[in-house]
Design a protein around this nucleic acid. Structure first.
Length: 238
DNA sequence: AACCAGGACGTGA
DNA sequence: TCACGTCATGGT
């Protein structure tokens, strides 16, 4: 097995199943996740089960841009308070009829002036595609959806086999010398996709495991210095 | 008190 | 294309 696959196995053994993407109405009393109230569903890949859950994931993917998940959870609960449900038509109605309340609801996630517009954009897009699975290209045309958000939506809201590259992925695999500092998003994405079976469950799990491991050893500089779990995969520079 | 969080966009070279 | 500034609240 290749290194990418081996590292996945080690992370899975160390941290077990992560149960991403968390949903605020899924109460997992056994959750031990750092910073999360609840919402994770380990070994259950059946989500989203309906349109509300699907759009909750999409909302969360915008709100979590450069922000911690605890803040996003608060915002989702705030939205849940002023909205009847997470159906896109309903969210759109709330957003249009009470713009300032909605803005206040997502304030805690930062960049709220931008994010409210991004949410408005993805709402229009979501309603426009009318139940179809969006392509990556289409998603990227939506202002507010970049590479990572597009892949998050595709992988977790639509179960499409698209690997997500986030800041922790770059830090960890840069520390292990598997990638270079200036490697593009798509290049890093390809590295994983070429070395993993085409299976959305593995993609979902791997990304979540990277985040978990990243939070532990790659939050503060110097990144990875205490990462004894993966140190054996550190490649020598030529 | 600086630093970072499950980034994206606009600008100018 | 790509480096850089900007957007902003909240926790450590």
């Amino acid at each position: 097995m290749n290194s990418i696959g081996k590292i996945y196995k080690i992370l899975l053994k160390e941290y077990s199943y992560q149960g991403w993407w968390p949903l605020i109405h899924y109460d997992n009393i056994n959750s031990t996740k750092t910073g999360a109230i609840n919402g994770y569903h380990p070994k259950d890949y059946s989500f989203p089960k309906n349109e509300e859950e699907r759009f909750e994931i999409i909302l969360g993917s915008i709100l979590t841009q450069n922000t911690n998940w605890v803040s996003v959870e608060k915002a989702l609960f705030n939205i849940d308070k002023i909205a009847i449900d997470f159906k896109p038509e309903n969210i759109l109605k709330i957003l249009n009829e009470d713009f300032n309340s909605f803005k206040e609801a997502i304030r805690c996630t930062g960049y709220y002036n931008q994010k409210i517009n991004y949410i408005s954009n993805i709402l229009d897009f979501y309603i426009e595609i009318n139940g179809e699975i969006p392509t990556r290209k289409e998603l990227l045309k939506v202002k507010g959806v970049g590479n990572e958000t597009a892949d998050s939506i595709l992988l977790y809201a639509y179960k499409q086999v698209e690997f997500i590259v986030d800041a922790y992925t770059k830090r960890i695999f840069l520390y292990l010398n598997h990638i270079k500092e200036k490697d593009s998003y798509l290049k890093i994405k390809e590295l994983f996709e070429e070395n993993l079976p085409s299976n959305y469950k593995i993609y979902q799990e791997y990304h979540a495991l990277i985040v978990e491991h990243g939070k532990k050893y790659y939050m503060k500089k110097p990144y990875g210095i205490n990462d004894n779990l993966l140190k054996n995969f550190k490649m020598e520079l030529i």
